[in-house]
């Protein structure tokens, strides 16, 4: 019998697998969702640059057969700006953990969205700092137990999508690993969007978040927890703020046109 090879394998750096993600981790799924979107759109892989900072999520680009930058925590959008302004013809995609993007990288996030830098950010929200062993993150829910909040977190949770919309991002949506069809569709939209696009993907981390916050390392249980707390934007509209507490609203929050950031230069035409 002939061995079947995944048709997406051609997008993997040197064809080399397996990846280093834990069993049950959502990062592998997200990698595959991204490749499905790219494949579906028939994008020129040579013209895609993928960037990861530091973290589990940040390792996605090291498996992709693109030009990639990796290995410094939180600076993805600064790198991206330099590349994008110098080579506007390239598509820049960032894979960022919640910690990478809005904790250490929060300032860059605020300003890249404000400027409407033409990049796509795929933020994997696993509700914790996974790679360092399950510490509290800006996305961790109030009262959650993590490795650095043994008595429960007493900090409010950051709604990254809301923040992005307020700051000036022009495409923002939130989905989860449990919703592949919607997630792939959203990634496709983001990749075709000119301007700052953010897709937040709620993702299961059974190894750390599951074990410490949910007291289970069962992937399915963690997925169910995410799924039970998720609610579609259309349904959420009918609920009060109190009812939406600790719920994750899924859907598209903004999709509009606005001039993109070019730096100070006479090289490019003022467009849109």
């Amino acid at each position: 019998m002939k061995e079947k090879i995944n048709p997406l394998r051609k997008y993997i750096r040197n064809g080399k697998l397996p990846h280093f993600f834990c069993p049950g981790c959502g990062c592998g799924q997200i990698l595959s969702y991204f490749l499905r979107a790219v494949d579906n759109l028939q994008l020129d892989f040579k013209k895609i640059v993928t960037i990861g900072g530091v973290g589990c999520t940040a390792r996605i680009p090291i498996y992709l057969n693109t030009d990639s930058l990796h290995g410094v925590h939180g600076r993805t959008l600064a790198w991206a700006t330099g590349i994008k302004l110098y080579r506007p013809d390239l598509k820049v995609v960032i894979f960022a953990g919640d910690g990478d993007l809005v904790s250490i990288g929060g300032n860059h996030f605020l300003h890249a969205t404000r400027r409407n830098l033409d990049v796509t950010v795929i933020m994997v929200n696993n509700f914790n700092f996974a790679m360092t062993g399950g510490q509290v993150a800006p996305t961790t829910l109030f009262n959650s137990v993590t490795m650095t909040t043994p008595y429960g977190s007493k900090e409010n949770t950051l709604d990254v999508c809301k923040l992005a919309v307020c700051a000036g991002a022009t495409y923002v949506s939130r989905w989860s690993t449990a919703k592949p069809i919607q997630t792939i569709k959203a990634i496709k939209k983001a990749l075709q969007h000119k301007g700052f696009s953010l897709i937040e993907i709620l993702s299961q981390c059974p190894t750390n978040f599951g074990r410490y916050a949910l007291k289970t390392s069962d992937t399915e249980e963690v997925l169910k927890w995410i799924e039970n707390k998720s609610i579609l934007k259309t349904k959420a509209k009918k609920l009060s703020e109190q009812e939406l507490k600790d719920r994750f609203v899924l859907g598209e929050f903004i999709h509009k046109k606005r001039p993109v950031f070019q730096g100070t230069t006479f090289l490019k035409e003022e467009d849109n």
């Binding site: 600064a78 991206a80 302004l85 110098y86 300003h111 730096g263 090289l267």
Partner: peptide, 30 residues
Amino acid sequence: RLPEVGGIFVQGEDELFSIYSIIGASLAGA
């Protein structure tokens, strides 16, 4: 001066931006 000779100038949000954005551009050939 830089825009006038075909270059790109950016004032970033902090010095981390400065250093990483120039590195990004450098790896793209600037």
